[in-house]
Structure formats: structure tokens, C-alpha cells
């Protein structure tokens, strides 16, 4: 069991989400930077999809009511005072010890995995907090106690290379609705950087920068949306959908961020600059 002494600015339990229910109005949800959660789990010999904690901008304190193996991945935060605590390496937190995480040096989301996984009650097959629909557990708050599952398998002797910041570039596959914009729009989108807005969250990264002008007026009938979709509301300022995005939407999607770059999008902080590049598909 892990007691939350301080969750930091925003922290949630996340696994790999609840795919397969989009047609019933259920967002996919799950870790915004899934690769980092998988890595933290692998370091502990956990199945990759076990639930961990997604911290937003670190600055959290946890008390371990029982000793546990822990690993951290994603945005690198200082971790202490537990001996051996650090990024990308399994470390033992003794019973009663407090684990403190500082603010990340770069990036936004840090993942804590625990051997056996966070064992809150799953909803529709997932333990993820869905910030849009409210499915899954409540976000972490002070005093909350998180159950830990029974460990299975063995801890591989393993060490992940320290994470390095990746260039803030999002490669985009055009469409499905690039034809709703003026022909120069994709070029304009790639020509200058965008700034990440303060109101970004797990639903999407909201950007401020070159306005993407529409060629077609009117309303697009609501249609299915994918994670990574760059949706453009009438103000012309794009939103990159992260995992809690609504499963359907009515604003045209000019392009979709490649899945390998979703981790980059998920680690953008408010105020960061980010560029798009277009890779022609087909």
C-alpha cells in the first residue's frame, strides 16, 4: 500500500487505457506517454500494461506502507531520500519510507511503476483515470491509499539509459480533413513554431501560433477521432489530441501526429515551443 502525502500539481493512476469502447463514447485514456510507463514496468519485471502513477510536473511525496520495488521513467525528476532512487533503475523503498520527487529538469510527465502494479479496481478493463469522462479512479489526492498488486515474475537486472530530451518536433501524416483548409495551411503549420498553451491537459496539447485558415465553411458531421489528431477549431489554433481525447468530434483534423512522436507531445510543457513536419503518406 502506498499513501499519498502530496500528489504534486496533478497525478493519476494510469495503465494502457480502455481501447475498444470508442463507439460507445468511451475515450481510450491510458498513460499519455505510454512508452515511459511500459519502460518503468519492464524494469520491474512487471507486465507492461500494469497500472502506475502518472505525475504531472513531479513535486510529489509518497509513503510506502509496505516495502516495494519501484522504477521511474519519463520526465527526469530528482528522487530521494531513499537510497538508490533515480530514473530508469529499479530501487527498493523500505516499509515506512517516504519517497520524494522534485520538479522535472525537462518534460512534463513522470511515471512511477511499482512491482505488482497499482491495484485499484478496474473499470471497463482499465485502472486509468479518464479526465474527460470521469471513468476510473479519482486523481490522486493527499491521504489517498493506493493498493499494490501481488508481484509476479522476476526482476531482470536492468538499467535504462538516462532519458534525453527529444527535439520538440512532431511528424504529421496529413489528413483526414486537410482538404478543409486552404492549400497553404499545412505549409504554414510547419513554417514556424507553435507555443504550448497553459490550458493543455490529458485531453490535448493546445497550441498558439500560425492560424490555419479554412477553405470550407460550415460544419463537419461528427466523426471518429484518433490519438495524435491535430484538430483545428474555428479560431484556427490547433489542438493535438492526447489519450483522453473525445472519441468523436466535429472540427476538421488537418493531420495526425505519428505514434512514435506522441511521447514528445505528451512531454511538452506550457510555454514550450514545438514544430510540425509533414510526411506525405500513402
Amino acid at each position: 500500500m502506498i499513501e499519498v502525502l502530496a500528489p504534486g500539481p496533478y497525478a493519476t493512476v494510469q495503465d494502457l487505457g480502455r481501447p475498444g469502447y470508442a463507439h460507445l463514447g468511451v475515450p481510450g485514456s491510458g498513460a499519455a506517454d505510454a512508452g515511459s510507463l511500459r519502460l518503468a514496468n519492464r524494469l520491474l519485471g512487471n507486465a507492461e500494461g500494469l497500472a502506475g502513477i502518472e505525475f504531472t510536473f513531479g513535486m510529489a511525496r509518497l509513503r510506502f506502507l509496505a516495502g516495494a520495488w519501484v522504477a521511474l521513467a519519463g520526465a527526469p525528476v530528482p528522487a530521494g531520500p531513499v537510497a538508490g532512487a533515480g530514473m530508469g533503475v529499479p530501487f527498493w523503498v523500505p516499509e515506512g519510507a517516504e519517497l520524494r520527487l522534485g520538479a522535472p529538469q525537462w518534460g512534463l510527465r513522470t511515471y512511477l511503476a511499482v512491482r505488482g502494479g497499482i491495484a485499484v479496481e478496474p473499470v471497463l478493463g482499465s485502472r486509468s483515470t479518464d479526465s474527460l469522462s470521469g471513468l476510473g479512479p479519482e486523481p490522486l489526492r493527499e491521504g489517498m491509499v493506493l493498493p499494490v498488486g501481488r508481484p509476479e515474475g522476476v526482476i531482470p537486472v536492468d538499467l535504462a539509459p538516462p532519458p534525453e530530451p527529444r527535439p520538440a518536433v512532431l511528424r504529421v501524416v496529413p489528413g483526414p480533413r486537410d482538404d478543409w483548409f486552404v492549400p497553404e495551411a499545412l505549409e504554414a503549420m510547419c513554417a514556424a513554431p507553435y507555443t504550448v498553451s497553459q490550458d493543455s491537459n490529458r485531453v490535448g496539447v493546445r497550441l498558439r501560433g500560425p492560424e490555419l485558415a479554412r477553405a470550407k465553411e460550415g460544419e463537419l458531421p461528427s466523426e471518429g477521432m484518433v490519438t495524435g489528431a491535430v484538430q483545428v477549431p474555428p479560431n484556427g489554433q490547433p489542438i493535438v489530441f492526447l489519450t483522453d481525447h473525445p472519441p468523436t468530434g466535429g472540427y476538421p483534423v488537418i493531420g495526425v501526429v505519428r505514434s512514435a512522436d506522441l511521447a514528445v507531445a505528451a512531454q511538452l510543457r506550457p510555454g514550450d515551443e514545438v514544430r510540425f513536419t509533414v510526411r506525405r503518406g500513402r
Binding site: A22, H23, G28, P221, S222, E223, G224
Partner: peptide, 26 residues
Amino acid sequence: LDAALRDERPEGVVEIVPGPETVLVV
């Protein structure tokens, strides 16, 4: 189309999302 794809789900398909004038297949 949604019903047909659900009846015989092609390999690897995770989501089938019908809309008023589209079906998204992921």
C-alpha cells in the same frame, strides 16, 4: 458497414467508430 465489420472483425482492428457519414477503423 459497422455491423459487417463487427460480424467479421478484420485482424488487428481495435476500434470501429461509426459517425453520421463516416466509419473510423483503427
